[in-house]
């Protein structure tokens, strides 16, 4: 009997060694080193259900600030119908329990508008990504369970099921449940499925291109398909540079209106 119990304990401990808990995996993916700042150019490709393509181009800067704050500024520079639109998002460490702050500058009105962060279900610039899809992983917003391991695009991943922890999370994201595949070695989200109230997958994300940039595994292309209407979008990152010298003013409200110019951010040239 003792041998049996010892064996069971061994099995149990070796199982927990091989299968870390879901929150640890998610926390590790959330907190992986991605530098103190970065700059990148982004192409947002919007495909209609008929396959028609529209493109939008933006510059993006991100910088870690004191007080566990992370600021991101996104500035659309083409085409003409979106030129000058900018977003500033201040994310705070999840442990601070402080909600995000968001501002938007619309050149047509020459005005910076404060946006509530309780509802991020809106489409990001017409794409199939919504605003919550741009957020970092929030571990405590969901009750997560490790389902197992699978291979996605040739990469070994952990498969985690995440159920919204509250109605507020559902109201904010529009997602009742998600299933996420995280690269076991690179700590990068490789794939994510989003479920509606009926438990049906209605959106699916996949990181179709991941590259190592300055030692940081970086998603270079992320695709989001809306399975209900057949629309899909791609977010393609280029000229990614980590730990760039960014003045705090470049990720400030004042920069919302001024935008991002490669003339002032050499890494974007």
């Amino acid at each position: 009997m003792r041998t049996f119990i010892t064996g069971l304990l061994f099995l149990s401990s070796s199982f927990s060694f091989a299968m870390p808990d879901a929150n640890s995996i998610l926390t590790q993916a959330r907190d992986r080193d991605d530098g103190a700042s970065y700059s990148t150019q982004v192409t947002l490709k919007l495909y209609s259900s008929d396959g028609d393509l529209r493109e939008r181009h933006l510059y993006m800067l991100q910088k870690d600030l004191p007080n566990q704050e992370e600021r991101a500024l996104m500035h659309f520079h083409s085409p003409s119908d979106v030129r000058g639109v900018s977003f500033l998002i201040a994310n705070y460490d999840e442990n601070t329990a402080q909600p995000d702050d968001q501002w938007m500058y619309l050149p047509a009105f020459r005005k910076t508008r404060r946006l509530g962060s309780n509802d991020k279900r809106g489409s990001f610039m017409g794409s199939t990504f919504n605003y919550s899809d741009l957020d970092k992983i929030r571990v405590n917003d969901y009750q997560s369970t490790l389902l197992g391991e699978e291979e996605v695009l040739g990469r070994p991943t952990w498969v985690i099921e995440r159920v919204a922890a509250s109605q507020d999370v559902i109201n904010k994201t529009g997602y009742h449940k998600t299933k996420v595949w995280i690269d076991k070695e690179r700590d990068v989200v490789m794939q994510q499925h989003y479920y509606n109230a009926k438990g049906i997958v209605f959106k699916a994300q996949q990181s179709t291109e991941v590259e190592q940039v300055q030692g940081v595994w970086t998603i270079m292309t992320s695709e989001m398909v809306n399975l209900e209407n057949g629309k899909r979008s791609e977010m393609i990152f280029s000229d990614v540079e980590y730990n760039v010298a960014l003045d705090d003013k470049l990720v400030s409200k004042r920069s919302l209106k001024r935008g991002i110019s490669p003339a002032k951010v050499p890494s974007l040239r």
Binding site: D101, R114, L115, G116, S117, N118, N171
Partner: peptide
């Protein structure tokens, strides 16, 4: 002034 309060932003 402008400040969010829950789901709304007051101005």
């Amino acid at each position: 002034l402008s400040r969010p309060f829950g789901p709304v932003v007051m101005r």
